[in-house]
Design a protein around this nucleic acid. Structure first.
Lengths: 222, 222, 222, 222
DNA sequence: AATGAATGAGTTTTCATTCAT
DNA sequence: TATGAATGAAAACTCATTCAT
């Protein structure tokens, strides 16, 4: 009874009608549901109905909060990019010795994809469509990664310190680091089917992580 | 030459009528059109109507020749996989010195994706769907790549010859070689947008190719 | 009266706009239209487009309210069965002398089919399909007719009263009463064509009704 | 060996190519297949493809031999009507005492439907369509049943002999005899479902047959 | 803010029928 | 006679989006 007394007034406080109104929460539920649906089914395959159902809210609210399906997709893209940037900001590579810095970068890239496998699949449609949404987004425009210039600095330092060979392009190294993990995560199903061997097990994943770190680190030797 | 002389007049002779009957050609036109449409729009986004229109044939023939949209998609997958295998068969790595063999493999992987950029995008949906079609295909089951065991052999030889370091896993090296090119091609649009610089130009592509070869070759040094 | 005064003006006031919202009415319009279309064309021959057109509503609403064509067909079946049961409930055979009771039952059966000739034709497809829908319907499961047991009681009373002969099975008598009318209504077109004589005229129908009553009543004599 | 010698030349005689040509057989196979398909699925639900597949011949032959789907349906109708007439011709009721004659007629009606349950279901669509095909068929026009006049004669004789009551209409008695069996066979699935009891078992069928004979015979008593 | 009804354009698939050989 | 390819119209069902409350 006390629970009832404690909770009911709170609930009623911001809701006179039968349905609680919580715009921020509704928006977030929609965004989360959309992220899952887009990851599961792609942009074309995703269903607005399904997103609303997953969020447990009325379909019309998709249009109320986001405008249309495309804009919702963009909102999801912005969200996952922001996640990446947040993770990058937490890396604190500046003070580290070059080799440690690169190693940490590789591991962080791998771990981020491991933790957010939907990032890959969300980007696929965007790439097929020529990055239509990304290019049209002011938010994403302002979200340029600081990592490339950071990698550039680290490489220079490493060369100066005699631990890295010369002539490595920072942009391409960054792409390589991303690609070595990305491809593994994105293509595990077909690779597993073709090789007839499960590449998604924890053991296989640990082996892959080590392989990627080794490959890049060894390739940087002078 | 004689074949041409013998066949062409015959074909032309009665190709005055509006419609020629050529089941094999029709099937192939559909397959080609489907490959394009699936690459452009994905499995969910592809339109059977559009495929038929691109092929210039009646829509019903999709069902006549392939059964349904999914089966057509599988046929396209089988085609692109067969292309990859054909390319692999032509590599002739056996007689080469280990370093040359790996180099050729890397370059061929890159060049194949450059020549067939749709391969990537065709696989995206398949991977999102857990390789549903690939796993259900007997043709693909019988199409296991010989390359992994070949890479394994090359690595051993390289180690014995003192040109490669020890402890490199052949499966993961194969995945890495593929991934370093794959990710570049698949994510060029978003990467270009994010980096604010066109990565798809011929110059950029040549630079990427060189980078990938260098990265892998350097990483293999003892 | 006050209700009327209060509501009617309101409804009329804003019914100037093109579309009024009335889910229940929409559902019913669809059901009525479906009943006609299924009766006219059968389950396979009925067109969802036509049903929507007859109802004057959007086709999608068929799926919105009923799920699919089959479920709509089931809803129609449930409706006509409910009609039959309602009619049976109104018969009040309990207090009547046995002969009057049976006579009223026969006449009511005939008259119901005369008033609802579509019942027959709606059941045809269902019987061809092995009563697939009826067996899957909880509503119909709960709608068992009380008439068989009632006929059983009436027969016993009639035997006890010396007006009916012994040994008549209630289920089969019920089926016979139904069948004698059913077949006439269901096969009038072919019978008329074959006999070269219109069996559907009011005169012919009255004659048939009398014949059926006589046949059954005479057969029950001790 | 002798069998081969006897049969092969005959078969080869009229077929030089790889496919045996036997127009009459092909036509009959199509007709049989069509009868099954129309019985299973109705006129609207039947598929020309399925009919050809069941017959094991090319679909085009349906059009070659019958014109179109409707004409094929009519051919099936003519076939089943001819079967009924053939059975009626074999009855030989003329010489029998009135009661025996009627009894034999009832039993034969019941047994014919038991042996050819598809007759019912084939007629359903025809009746729904207002006997469109039957009325347009010259063959069926010429196939009027002799039974009605025969029943008329039998009834008169029975009245004269004092075994039948007066005032029974021959057409309606004929319809009743047919209907008492017809309805049982046509509606067994729904009746079984509604009554919650299998009416199609051999035992149930025997009981029904006896009931029908009794009902009619008792009703004829003076 | 939130709901569910309603819409119209599309999407895959089916089907009777015709064509070319 | 027989075959399989080809066609066009339509069928059931879907879906993003808007409307009315």
């Amino acid at each position: 009874m006390s629970t009832v007394w404690l909770e009911m007034p709170i609930r009623r406080a911001d809701s006179t009608g039968p349905k609680r109104r919580d715009p921020a929460a509704t928006r977030e539920k929609l965004l989360t549901a959309a992220r899952r649906e887009f990851a599961d089914s792609g942009l074309a395959g995703a269903r607005v109905d399904e997103i609303a159902a997953r969020a447990g809210v009325n379909k019309q609210l998709v249009y109320h909060y986001f405008g249309d399906k495309d804009a919702l997709y963009l909102a999801v893209l912005e969200w996952v990019y922001e996640e990446i940037r947040a993770q990058e900001r937490k890396l604190n590579l500046e003070g580290l010795p070059p080799q440690q810095a690169i190693k940490r970068l590789i591991e962080a890239s791998f771990d981020h994809l491991a933790a957010h496998p939907d990032f890959i699949v969300l980007l696929n449609d965007e790439n097929r469509g020529g990055a239509r949404h990304v290019r049209g987004s002011r938010k994403l425009e302002a979200m340029h990664s600081p990592l490339v210039s950071m990698v550039s600095t680290i490489l220079s330092e490493g060369v100066r310190a005699g631990v890295f060979r010369k002539g490595i392009n920072a942009v391409h190294l960054y792409i390589s680091i991303a690609g070595l993990s990305y491809f593994y995560f994105s293509n595990t199903p077909t690779l597993s089917a073709i090789f007839g061997k499960d590449l998604s097990s924890p053991t296989a994943r640990r082996a892959r992580r080590k392989h990627v770190v080794d490959l890049v680190m060894q390739s940087l030797r002078p």
